[in-house]
Write a protein that binds this DNA or RNA. Structure first.
Lengths: 202, 202
DNA sequence: GTCTATAAGTGGATAGAC
DNA sequence: GTCTATCCACTTATAGAC
């Protein structure tokens, strides 16, 4: 909406180039890892010259960050929606299943997300990862009339790490059924952290 | 043993140069990540020229691999020793505590090991990671008279991922006490997978 | 064994014409 | 907006003198 497009341009919209660049970047990183997401390769994949790419994006690092952000936003939207419609007591399990399911259905996003920490080096965003799950665990416990748990941070971290490992295995070995694994992990989370009998904090 | 050393060499031994290079590589990677482990920086850290470094080591990639192997060997030796002296039924828990304890005590090794998968790209060694733990779980179960569990691979993967997450958190936030976390995780593993009451496989 | 010098390549980014 | 041409920083590795 706004700027008239030049004469005889292909189907593509005017400023949609940035989105296109983000898309090809996600494909490159998802298929071949971050080292493959080089300016030259991005340009080639987009059908542009290197200079043209840098006309639409300030720097390669910024483009990589934008691609990661988009993947993250998509993940959060989908998992968030699944969690919202579930009963409070079921949410931790739903979170586990939704997370693993998302990456099963979006193999490219898997690599973009899992290698982002190492290659994009964003220290200190660990809390953003475990806190939402810790909150779900806390709410599920109170909804079941259980006392507040001792160390929800460790519990959430451990569950998050378990999710990552299962997702990674699915990526490595396509024969591995992460759907089954997701349900087993979800069941273990529920019975271990939300069981009424012996209120053993994790 | 063998080759006489040249005249007036410093304290260092003859072929110990390779070990020295591995050492400085571990330090570089451990402190600043794999991208910092460049030929130039390794040479500088070792007090040699780049050409001299390549006189003792065939290639930079080989040196990086050797550094990783050394870290891995050290980890396996220490954890293996701890597991061996424990009772069979305690071994899964001991494994968890020993793994987390090792990385708490060797911060540099943490980064070398955790970023190796991404930067050294050794696909398919996933099995080497989860199989030993799966075996410990199996043996502990039979020692307790429990039936064979359904999916020990997923269980071992999940526990391994949880360990990684706790180790990473310790590295990110020094205030986080991974020792407490290790004991909680070990306890959860024992009660979830080795409990006699309801034999619920994970 | 160690060095200097150099080759040969890859990366990101800019200049300036069209 | 898009291009070609260029620059610069950096990397690995080799050649050959000492």
């Amino acid at each position: 909406m706004s700027t008239r497009r030049g004469p005889g341009r292909p189907p593509g919209a005017p400023a949609a180039r940035r989105e296109q660049l983000i898309e090809v970047t996600i494909e490159l990183v998802g298929d071949q890892g971050y080292p493959a997401a080089t300016l030259g390769r991005i340009a080639e994949a987009a059908g542009l010259s290197k200079a043209s790419v840098l006309h639409h994006v300030p720097t390669v690092a910024e483009l990589l960050a934008a691609a990661y952000e988009q993947v993250l936003a998509s993940l959060v939207a989908e998992v968030g929606a699944a969690v919202e419609v579930a009963a409070v007591t079921d949410r931790p399990g739903v979170y586990v299943i939704a997370m693993i399911g998302y990456f099963r259905d979006h193999p490219r996003h898997t690599r973009v997300a899992s290698e982002a920490l190492v290659h994009l080096g964003r220290p200190g965003q660990s809390q953003e990862r475990w806190e939402p799950l810790a909150r779900l665990l806390e709410q599920a416990r109170t909804a079941r009339g259980l006392p507040p748990a001792a160390d929800l941070r460790t519990a959430a971290l451990a569950i998050g790490g378990a999710i990552d490992a299962i997702v990674r295995e699915q990526q490595t070995d396509p024969d591995y059924d992460s759907t089954d694994a997701a349900e087993q992990l979800a069941a273990a989370v529920t019975t271990t952290l939300l069981s009424p009998p012996a209120s053993r904090p994790r």
